[in-house]
Computed example of a mutant assay.
Amino acid sequence: MSQDILKAGVIGWPISHSLSPRLHGFWLDQLSIHGRYDAVPVVPEDLASFVRSLPENGFQGVNVTVPHKEAVMDHCDKIDDLALRIGAVNTLIVDDQGLILGSNTDHYGFKQNLLASGEIAAGPKERAAVVIGAGGASRAICTALEELGFPKIHLLNRTVSRAQSVARDLGGPILPGPLSDLPALLPDIGLLVNTSSLGMKGQDPLHVDLSDLPMECLVTDIVYNPLMTDLLRQARERGNKVVDGLGMLLYQAVPGFEAWFRPMEKPMVTDALRKYVLAGIA
């Protein structure tokens, strides 16, 4: 596909709050690429027509956010195995034949954020992980934790049936349970992850007593507004290492940017990028 301006974007409903245009715009400027990345509002009933028209409208591809990550799978020509297992697609790539390829880079973003922090290494772990929340993000995160070598992944949710559904779909070392199981599990875990919206700006707080958490346990939250959630603040104040959620957003963007804009240099997640993107949070 030949065109003067390489075009990509992010689709969702609503979408005006997205930080992705700011993020990708930073790399486009930094790497001197003649391209653009726009936030495109797409209502659910227009999803199919919009996705199928990506090639003719000159798109190299798009990111996909709520509420379309699962529904968009019906409109892809090909979906990679990882995204099929997770059951969600957040990145579409239009190939040279005009076919639409679906993948999931949330998995990569979460995993890479932990590894880049230096607080966790790849390979077998002695202690289990606890994941709070059984929404869409939890599927990608549980898969990443399995790859990182956690022997058990306790998936806790207020509605246990949702956690059971995720565990059944993914298989592997995922053990579903109610959120009320958390206090009993805390003393024996090596990682605590919040994948729910609790603690996000405008949402209810996440009430967790970390008194029995091992000091060597790492705590992370996929929420990045606020950057230091109550969970992370409480963990840090008691001496645990923490990893904020902004890095997941930044790292998940790398594979898509590389596929759409084909830069000569790999886009890097740097302190300058973090500060620039954070400045866009209202």
Rank of each mutant, 00 (worst) to 15 (best):
M1P: 11
P14G: 09
P14N: 05
I15Q: 10
S16G: 13
L19W: 02
G25M: 03
G25Y: 02
W27E: 00
G35Y: 03
A39H: 03
V40H: 10
F50W: 12
F50C: 07
S53W: 02
L54G: 02
N57Y: 04
N63G: 05
V66L: 15
M73G: 11
D77N: 07
L82Q: 15
R85V: 11
V94D: 01
V94C: 03
Q97P: 00
N104H: 11
Y108K: 04
L114R: 00
L114N: 00
A116K: 12
A121G: 00
I132H: 09
I132Q: 03
A144R: 02
L148Q: 01
H154P: 05
V160D: 05
Q164S: 14
V166I: 13
A167W: 10
D169P: 01
I174G: 00
L182W: 02
I189E: 09
L192M: 10
L198H: 09
M200Q: 08
M200A: 12
Q203K: 15
Q203W: 02
P205H: 05
V208R: 06
L210F: 10
D212S: 15
D212R: 13
L213H: 05
D221Q: 06
V223Y: 06
P226G: 08
L227K: 01
L231D: 12
L231E: 09
A235E: 11
D244W: 04
D244V: 02
G247Q: 06
G247A: 03
V254Q: 05
P255H: 06
F257L: 07
E258R: 12
A259C: 07
F261G: 05
E265N: 12
K266P: 02
A272Q: 15
L278A: 10
G280Q: 07
I281P: 01
